[in-house]
Design a protein around this nucleic acid. Structure first.
Length: 482
RNA sequence: CGCGGGGUGGAGCAGUGGUAGCUCGUCUGGCUCAUAACCAGAAGGUUGCAGGUUCGAAUCCUGCCCCCGCAACCA
């Protein structure tokens, strides 16, 4: 298994019914930072992202805008492609579920599940409140009406759908979880899904009648039905690496390390894994589950007007600073709050006053000697082997923000060191000692530059260059506005 | 008894059994190489409440109180 050091990462595909928001951006960067870290460690990596474009919501949204669903999806997908580019996300594939290769893969996947006896057809009869757009159980109804919409009649939806035998996978899933104690991070989410699966699983509907909901992947051998959006969307993780046509490529990369939000816990860590089992394919490698991001303590909402547009962040702070800030929001797995004010504060503290100012003061001092006081190749090769154990441990727990903390500690160490040794005085009294001290400063700063590379690749390069050429740079100008 | 998350110095958060830490802010002092930046020191907490387990609890158990999501622009 370790013969080829390889890692395959994927974000969850954003559903294209809205513009990208800050949490999408965070997940993109998170996956990208992981991928870059493993590249640094000599792994072959594959990074997938894309867009989920089928389903009723998209169909209606497209209608509202007077567009064909396919056309609408294409326009929306472009926003996410632009975001990925602007974030300097080095993705290897951007899969759209409307892509022909994905549609074919989803159909083949369906067939395999069907052949293995995991799909069956049955009448699907539910009580439905149009006001809520939700199924209602008898226990939820008051006098036969929805308590939230007492004036609307409950509709009975009665159609034949295909179902996935989720219930048949309870034991297998639990067994799988038991054998893979690190499958879901953080642990509390793992406990949550285990208890969900232990509580009994219900088969779920995986298709819709086509004439009611035409925008989806056609069910094989039944042109009257299309797949429920979840069923086809999840298959993207394998269709993107060319399953089933290119078995070799699939074997090269699979299984995948996934990132998702806590609202996706069931789909990614239980349903999808059961689906893979049903198709006789190996399960995912692991799943990192993020908490939610709120803005000023509230859910992001257009009506409240507190949406933070990641593109606006990039405009304001630049690509690398935005990447840094996104990773710094909260701590992994927890819900966290942010705001423009907090972002600016963090930017000033860590980037302008921290690394930016440090580079500035060291380079100015360094310019006062003609000697070259460090060997970049020596440092690079030494860094390649050192302290990786600690980083791998943090990566495996998903705690990118803790890696940033260890970088901040080094920055503070250098600021303190400069204060203590006062090189600006030494230069007047003892040039040799000055050079000795400077050598240490420059070396550690170069190490810091290498450490931040996965987070801020361009900044890393700029600092390295600045040290090699002794050129002053202003990395992160301080924000004075509120 | 719907499900889930959370309550730790002024603010935001770490910390899952062993002297309560970090960032921001505040105050005092220092420094001038630097992006009005940087450094040192200080003030500030009975860790929501009440019990319990333990030599020892923010951390485990029980009960209670309060806040926030689950109704979307979904990660």
């Amino acid at each position: 298994m370790t013969k080829n050091k390889r890692k395959y990462f994927t974000t969850t595909l954003p559903y294209v019914n809205a513009r990208p928001h800050i949490a999408h951006a965070r997940e993109f960067v998170q996956a990208d930072v992981f991928s870059r870290f493993y590249q640094e460690m000599g792994f072959d990596t594959f990074l997938n992202t894309g867009t989920d474009e089928h389903g009723l919501k998209i169909f209606r949204k497209a209608q509202e805008e007077g567009l064909d669903a396919r056309e609408y999806g294409k326009i929306q997908a472009q926003h996410f492609i632009d975001l990925a580019e602007q974030l300097n996300m080095k993705y290897d594939a951007f899969i759209r579920t409307a892509d022909e290769k994905h549609v074919k893969a989803a159909q083949e996947f369906w067939k395999r599940c069907d052949e293995n006896g995991c799909i069956y057809k049955k009448a699907y009869k539910i009580k439905y409140c149009v006001g809520c757009e939700l199924e209602k159980t008898d226990s939820e109804l008051v006098d036969g009406h929805c308590p939230d919409h007492p004036n609307q009649e409950i509709e009975i939806i009665d159609e034949e759908n295909y179902f996935f035998k989720f219930s048949a996978f309870q034991e297998k899933l639990l067994d799988f979880y038991k054998k893979n104690p690190d499958f879901v991070k953080p642990e509390k989410r793992f406990r949550e899904i285990i208890s969900f699966v232990e509580n009994s699983l219900e088969d779920f509907s995986i298709s819709r009648v086509k004439n009611k909901m035409p925008w989806g992947v056609e069910v094989p051998n039944d042109p009257e039905q299309v797949m429920y959006v979840w069923f086809d969307a999840l298959v993207n993780y394998i269709s993107t690496i060319n399953w089933p046509q290119d078995e070799e490529n699939f074997k090269k990369w699979w299984p995948v390390v996934q990132f998702c939000g806590k609202d996706n816990l069931r789909q990614q860590t239980a349903m999808w894994q059961a689906m893979l089992m049903a198709a006789s394919l190996p399960t995912s490698e692991m799943v990192f589950v993020n908490g939610f991001v709120t803005v000023d303590g509230q859910k992001m909402s257009k009506s409240i007007g507190n949406v933070i547009d990641p593109m606006e962040m990039i405009e304001k702070f630049g690509t690398d600073a935005t990447r840094y800030l996104l990773v710094s929001i909260g701590s992994f797995g927890e819900d966290s709050d942010t705001s423009w004010e907090k972002l600016i504060e963090k930017y000033n503290a860590d980037l302008a006053n921290g690394i930016g100012n440090l580079v500035s003061r060291i380079v100015t001092l360094y310019q006062k000697t003609d000697k070259k006081l460090f060997n970049e190749e020596e440092i690079s090769s030494r860094m390649a082997g050192s302290s990786k154990g600690e980083i791998v441990k943090l990566l495996e727990e998903g705690k990118l923000e803790n890696i940033l903390v260890s970088i901040k500690i080094r920055i503070a160490y250098l600021d303190g060191k400069i204060e203590e040794r006062k090189p600006w005085e030494l230069i007047k009294t003892d040039i040799e000692l000055f050079e000795e001290e400077m050598a240490e400063l420059v070396k550690v700063l170069f190490e810091i530059a290498l450490m931040i590379k996965p987070f801020m690749p361009k900044t890393s390069e700029k600092i390295q260059k600045s040290l090699i050429n002794k050129e002053k740079i202003n990395l992160f100008p301080r924000f004075l506005e509120k």
